[in-house]
């Protein structure tokens, strides 16, 4: 019996990522991780790519993890957990383990979209029974806010600075969730911690499925995004309300857009909350703002069209 996804029951569960870790106040990553753990009712083993979540939670001789946890390197959280899962399968087959254990890999966008993409793609293709969680804060925050392939168009980072000639990052981010879906894995989804019930429901599906699953979680970073430390949840909500970060899932190929704002807000509502986009509102950058809005609209409409096409194909 799984714990009902109600605050009353969930708040009575033991936290598996303890307080006292050294992530920044207001960081989105541990909020996501705690929601993930609260959603689980089976024991898990996790691997973690090098990054903020890793360095800040395991400063020797302390650890914030109350689960078996391994960090080996930056680009290989998926390969590492696939080894753990392979050993589990081997020992289970030989009768040396009889209990059900699930396997999760955590990585930031740098360790997932960029340097870890090969390892992730390999693990997904091999169909290990693992859940890969990317906490996407849109840059290499751990090393000091360098651009990654998840950094949004126009964002000011320390390696795509908004200068006098170049206005921040010139390339749109890649769509990793769709790249994962294109691996034809049983489950891939996008989530955001402001909608905890949706996030936890997705985690449960991903864990229950026999085979690989991927969840891309929007993770606020007040240092990198240049915001106050108390806006993680409201900014995440805005990202979804503007369709900058749509909530959707591919469940065995079937696309569901999990949240459709009644009134889609202009993307500037999201952008203006963050210092990393401040330069975009200066005169001369109107075209860039327009391009960002067009990109959001195109991707959002494509999602809705794809969902509608699937339903009409089923009903016809």
């Amino acid at each position: 019996m799984s714990t009902p996804l109600r605050l009353k029951e969930l708040t009575n569960k033991e936290e598996l990522l303890t307080g006292g870790h050294r992530l920044c106040a207001g960081c989105g990553a541990p909020i996501a991780v705690r929601q993930i753990f609260l959603a689980l009712d089976v024991p898990v083993v996790a691997s973690n790519a090098t990054g903020c979540l890793e360095v800040s939670t395991t400063i020797y001789p302390y650890t914030a993890w109350k689960i078996p946890w391994i960090h080996s390197a930056f680009e290989n959280a998926a390969a590492t957990i696939s080894g753990v899962e392979a050993m589990y399968k081997s020992l289970k087959r030989k009768g040396k383990i009889d209990r059900k254990i699930k396997f999760i890999a955590f990585g930031g966008d740098g360790g997932t979209y960029d340097i870890g993409l090969q390892s992730l793609s390999g693990a997904m293709e091999r169909r290990h029974d693992i859940v890969y969680i990317c906490y996407d804060n849109g840059a290499y925050m751990n090393t000091g806010i360098q651009r990654s392939s998840a950094t949004p168009l126009g964002a000011n980072t320390t390696t795509s600075p908004a200068g006098t000639v170049i206005p921040g990052k010139l390339q749109p981010r890649k769509n990793l969730t769709k790249i994962m879906a294109a691996h034809n894995i049983p489950y891939s989804a996008q989530a955001s911690p402001h909608n905890w019930r949706d996030l936890m429901t997705k985690v449960r599906k991903a864990v229950e499925i026999d085979g690989p699953a991927f969840i891309n979680i929007f993770a606020h970073c007040n240092r990198g995004w240049r915001t106050p430390t108390n806006t993680a949840i409201q900014d995440s909500r805005l990202a979804v309300e503007t369709c900058f970060w749509p909530l959707y899932e591919y469940d065995n190929g079937r696309l569901t857009v999990n949240y459709k704002p009644k009134e889609k807000k202009p993307v500037t509502e999201f952008l203006k909350t963050q210092g990393r986009f401040k330069h975009l509102f200066r005169p001369g950058n109107e075209d860039l703002l327009r391009e960002i809005q067009e990109n959001v609209d195109r991707e959002w409409n494509a999602l809705l069209r794809e969902e509608a096409l699937q339903s009409s194909a089923e009903s016809s």
Binding site: S72, A73, G83, A123
Partner: peptide, 16 residues
């Protein structure tokens, strides 16, 4: 899919 992942998976498996 690579030797880097080979050793990474070996590390995960051995630690398991």
């Amino acid at each position: 899919e690579s030797e880097h992942s080979a050793m990474s998976a070996c590390i995960g498996a051995s630690a398991a």
